[in-house]
């Protein structure tokens, strides 16, 4: 299947910060998880990878994070191949996982302090940490509480605060809105918009077509390890993204069923 890439404006992606070039990953058991995937995310842009389970979204993120090595091709962060120099590449990113996992016996502030210092920022005081938590909407009384009682939305906010404080030029998000209630999802989307406006290159994997359409500058639809379609925000205005997604996910018959 050829990549369905319509009306892309190359000038907007002139200097990609995150980039995959013919990225391929075949696991030892023979499974082809990624098949020659190429896309780019520039500064101040949000790229949403849409796809079902096993589409290759998390594998792509794992390759950016240097957790696995590509079989061929490369994942580049600011021009640095992640499998060649993963540490230097990771200095330029922040990551928010699907099920935000922080240390449950630490308070929100202690978690923030640890991960931010781990990211190389030792210059932040308690007030600045608190301010970041304020910004992501975590109530003041929760700042000093241990995380073990936090909801997923609250943990998500902490993770985003970490990403903000790390002040990395790029942010990777794995299913960031899954499991969030509509209000939390909306607040989260709003924050992502703010970060984009600050010039961050944001790559997110998601099942959430609604949020992807709402926030992403570009959407890539992935299916069984391949990037099968790409659309820019402007193009999505006139196109039914859901129908497009379903068509690539389950074939044309599903699209008809969906329209009916």
């Amino acid at each position: 299947m050829n990549l369905d890439r319509t009306n892309l404006d190359p000038t907007t992606e002139a200097q990609p910060f995150l980039q995959t070039v013919e990225l391929t990953k075949r696991y030892e058991d023979g499974t082809l998880a990624l098949d020659r995937v190429s896309f780019e995310v520039g500064p101040g842009r949000i790229y949403a990878m849409l796809g079902g389970n096993g589409a290759g979204k998390t594998t792509t993120l794992n390759l950016f994070l240097g957790f696995i090595e590509p079989t061929s091709g490369e994942a580049l962060i600011d021009g640095i191949a992640t499998h060649v120099d993963p540490l230097r590449a990771k200095e330029r990113i922040a990551y928010v996982s699907e099920n935000v996992a922080l240390y449950p016996h630490f308070t929100a502030l202690q978690n923030l302090d640890f991960f931010v210092r781990l990211g190389g920022r030792n210059d932040l005081d308690r007030e600045q940490l608190s301010a970041a938590l304020d910004r992501v909407g975590l109530e003041r009384q929760a700042h000093g509480k241990r995380l073990k009682g936090f909801s997923k939305g609250m943990r998500q906010k902490c993770a985003l605060a970490i990403a903000i404080l790390k002040d990395a030029p790029a942010i990777l998000l794995d299913e960031p809105t899954s499991g969030l209630d509509p209000k939390a999802g909306m607040e989260f989307t709003q924050l992502l918009g703010e970060l984009r406006d600050e010039g961050k290159a944001i790559l997110m994997s998601t099942h959430d077509i609604f949020r992807a359409k709402q926030i992403a500058d570009r959407v890539g639809i992935m299916d069984r390890g391949r990037l099968v379609a790409e659309r820019q925000q402007a193009e999505l205005e006139g196109e039914d993204l859901e129908a497009l997604y379903v068509r690539y996910m389950a074939g044309p018959s599903a699209e008809v069923a969906c329209s009916a």
Partner: peptide
Amino acid sequence: AGTLRLVLSSA
């Protein structure tokens, strides 16, 4: 717990 991913996502 998932914290290993988060820690190793830093350099």
